[in-house]
Design a protein around this nucleic acid. Structure first.
Lengths: 335, 335
DNA sequence: TCCTCCTACTTAAACGTTTTCTTTATATTA
DNA sequence: TAATATAAAGAAAACGTTTAAGTAGGAGGA
């Protein structure tokens, strides 16, 4: 591997001069700089990130914490898209992305230790058990951190506007003439809390009268659980005219049950999803859903994180709320 | 940050002794080793990967090339699952994963340069334009490389058994009594080549007579393109009784068109997919498809790559063919 | 007793950079 | 002309680690 030393030998200058020339520093004459840069190119030089990181404590590497009960969040379309957008954006600034996990090398490390071990400049936390004490250790460390869809007091977070999202969805359904609206929400999490709270708040504002058995707990991304809850809703003596599912994918389970009952969507019962993944737009009828702006979320997360990396001291703690967009499909009938 | 030097000072031994003790080398008495290890733990020591990598040329970091026309392959369920499994496996051996791309730092680098820059021990190549000259540079470099679903002469590759897969699928459909079987395949790639060749070969073995307009080119993961081709097939004077789609997701487009024509699946027309993603098992009727063993592929890729890393000289070039499994859904009617 | 061989350690160089401080040479000023 | 400022380059230390080579001291053997 060609090193600065090799170039300095070939050019007959010192290593320091080569380093400065390649980094476009002031102290070098244009002629020398050109000469060195050309020689470096000819020799096929490229820098060594380990040496640079060791010396400067700046790795241009960002850690990503992205797991979900064993499975990595990768396999969830929503998070995959956020990560994808995040990756695109940080790459523009010259950053790479490394997954940070607990099990590494002979010893096992905490997230924080792992982050320090790899010398990452910052960490993106998403789709993870936010109540893990190892997450707390990281959150309270000196490493710049951004969280997605979860708020910590001392950290900037990017959150999808679940409050407005559910409000928009519910209001739309209301305006379509529905009054008996059920909601199968996801399992306990801050996302769910926001959605459910917003649901009840909107119900109040709209002066709706929603029986308590219309709001039930399902599981995100779980069509089976959704199917079960849907069945229960359909068995009620006073059946809802519209069901909001935890998310688009889970909705598939509900849709199957509805068909099983010989009911048509939306003629006999209306439905709505959440997320706005590709699938939702391909379903027949097209699903009415709330599309979360994963691209913007990823981009903002990148920008805010890099900002925090560049100004570790004066970093402002922000809660960036990213609005979603309602997708009017054909799954909610105009009554 | 606590360094070996700090520990050595506290313990009153040399830095070398600390290093050896922590790395369980022979040269140290048990008493000293214990003492040093305990002190290290107390002081909150963890190693610095940059320093280790710089010194040893071993980063315990694996590069991943995972992109797809702008979008990263992350957003494709099939590859997301392969990567997920790969990640799980390499982590067991203490490796981390870093995405390798072209744009990094001020200068832009080729994949190879980027790999060297980060000092990755090996690279996984998947879901990418394999005909890119930068991919060739990497393939022909000294860096251990594993490819997924594409064969290079000089590299080990893990490939899903597309030949047997299509054969199994077609044979199954044949045994269900179908003779007029259409195939909408994906765009040009080695995967497609294998599938199409296998389709024709099996057609011959089964002594089927498939008209040439039954085999048409679609686009993977593209429901619209699939819808268009499906429409064309349905418009044929001699309509097929079964259509094989490029993949499960693309199949959605075909399904919609079929419904649009007022046809029932499988009573009026049978269909099959490919991939066996979650979606396929949730569809009603359940899709008959070929499930690719993404978990095994990821694991094997990890094993083979680590093997190559540990034995760069005597690494054997292998083509590991991973069998899939046919999933008998209800989308193919028994004639 | 002396020599040899272990054992348990230390020394010091090296990996490829960056960066502070010096040095040298040249230009500018009085 | 001499003093001083400036530009361009170099020397050397440092980042945290590994490792080959060296050393001291004690045990074992003849």
């Amino acid at each position: 591997m060609v090193s600065l030393k090799d170039i300095s030998l070939k050019c007959g200058v010192s290593i320091a001069t080569v380093s400065k020339a390649l980094n476009d520093q002031k102290d070098i004459s244009d002629a020398t700089k050109m000469f060195i840069k050309n020689t470096a190119r000819e020799m096929g030089y490229f820098p060594n990130s380990s040496a640079i990181t060791l010396k400067t404590n700046r790795s241009y590497n960002i850690g990503v914490l992205f797991s979900d009960e064993g499975r990595s969040g990768l396999t969830q379309e929503y998070f995959a898209h956020v990560l994808d957008s995040f990756k695109d954006e940080v790459e523009k600034y010259g950053y790479d992305i490394t997954f940070i996990n607990k099990h590494i090398r002979p010893m096992s490390m905490s997230y924080y230790e792992h982050s320090r071990y790899r010398g990452v400049d910052g960490v993106l936390i998403a789709c993870i058990d936010f109540y893990d004490k190892d997450v707390y250790e990281l959150i309270n460390s000196e490493i710049p951190v951004i969280t997605i869809d979860h708020i910590f007091d001392n950290r900037t977070s990017i959150i999808s506007d679940n409050v407005q999202g559910i409000r928009d969805l519910l209001t739309y359904i209301y305006k379509m003439g529905h009054r008996k609206i059920a909601y199968i929400h996801g399992a306990k999490s801050s996302v769910t809390q926001n959605r459910v709270a917003s649901f009840y708040k909107t119900v109040e504002e709209l002066e709706l009268d929603i029986p308590s058995d219309y709001v039930v707990e399902g599981i995100y991304h779980n069509p089976e659980a959704t199917a079960k809850k849907t069945r229960e809703l359909l068995e009620l003596s006073d059946r809802p005219t519209c069901i909001i599912f935890p998310d688009d994918f889970a909705a598939m389970g509900g849709i199957n049950v509805i068909k099983e009952y010989g009911l048509r969507i939306p003629e006999d019962i209306s439905i709505a999803g959440y997320d706005g993944i590709l699938l939702s737009q391909i379903l027949e009828p097209k699903l009415t859903t709330l599309k979360q702006d994963t691209q913007l979320m990823g981009r903002l997360a990148a920008e805010k994180l890099i900002e925090a990396i560049n100004n570790p001291k004066e970093a402002i703690i922000e809660r960036v709320v990213v609005p979603g967009k309602i997708m009017h499909g054909n799954s909610v009938l105009k009554l």
